[in-house]
Design a protein around this nucleic acid. Structure first.
Lengths: 155, 155
DNA sequence: ATGAGTGCAAAGGCTTTGCATTAGG
DNA sequence: CCTAATGCAAAGCCTTTGCACTCAT
């Protein structure tokens, strides 16, 4: 496990493989070539990828293996399943690797891109959410925020 | 169409039926008993409902009709499909009826409840989102915000 | 060798669609 | 009357699972 890591910091690109290997080992899973290829794809894309997209980047990997490996990686805490529309699930590296961010979802083509907002807004938002949630007896773990609109390509 | 309606105001409960009827008429659709029953269910719940939940409240409606009617209502702009997890889609009345709000999603049982945050935070957030989105050539239409955590029943 | 990982194909589960019947305007 | 709406059943589509084979330890 990397030594220091603050809330907003992220794992350096060169250390992602090492980080993932460690997290997999923690749950008794191997860092196979297929899983390596998937992590590679996800770390190169600056956005969550769908299964079809992942398969394009990793030739020779069966669709079922992709699903299975992504589930393992999700259980290891290094991949998150992103549900935006009702078509395909998308997957991205967890925020302790990529850092906290949000998504811009194009309502025309369905593409999804990462976006970050100023820390100040983020903190005010988190505080407000925690407060209103607690009022209903709900214990907030984190928040999820999407910008819905039309992407550059579809304008 | 109701006379006055500001951004944060919502349609009075007693006027929902009339509002829906008008919106349906605008796209040449009838306000049938099945659709009336669905809107009735959605307006009584203070949270987005899944198809199974809607069917419980509206006896005698075929599942396929529920899906078809919800699609029609969605096209009419009075219902919104809410995607939270990968299990069931959920449906709620549009925000021009219910007012702008967000969702608390329980990561244990999957339940979803409505929640509102102070206007000030909402405005600051919207401004920040619009700004960062525009920087990428993305034209924001609206935002979507979920609080993920553990609900009162699951604590 | 020995169990995890993989590929292929079949099965699952939510959602959509085809078609004959019913009903609303 | 006549088209839209409904019910039932079948089909679709993403995702998961079963099973035999392969590979790494």
């Amino acid at each position: 496990m990397p030594g220091s890591k603050t809330e907003h910091q992220h794992v350096a690109a060169s250390d992602i493989a090492h980080h993932v290997a460690t997290k997999l080992a923690e749950i008794g899973q191997r860092f196979t070539s297929g899983r390596r290829a998937i992590v590679e794809s996800l770390s190169h894309a600056q956005r969550p990828l769908s299964i079809p997209e992942i398969l394009e980047h990793t030739t020779g990997l069966a669709q079922s293996s992709a699903y299975r490996n992504l589930t393992v990686l999700e259980n290891a805490g290094v991949v998150v399943r992103v549900i935006t529309t009702d078509e395909w699930a998308r997957f991205e590296l967890s925020e302790d690797i990529t850092g906290h961010h949000h998504h811009m979802v194009c309502s025309v083509c369905g593409s999804v891109d990462d976006v970050r907002i100023p820390d100040g807004i983020e903190e005010a938002l988190d505080a407000a959410l925690e407060r209103v949630a607690a009022k209903s007896g709900f214990k907030m773990a984190h928040h999820r925020l999407d910008v819905v609109g039309v992407c550059r390509a579809c304008r």
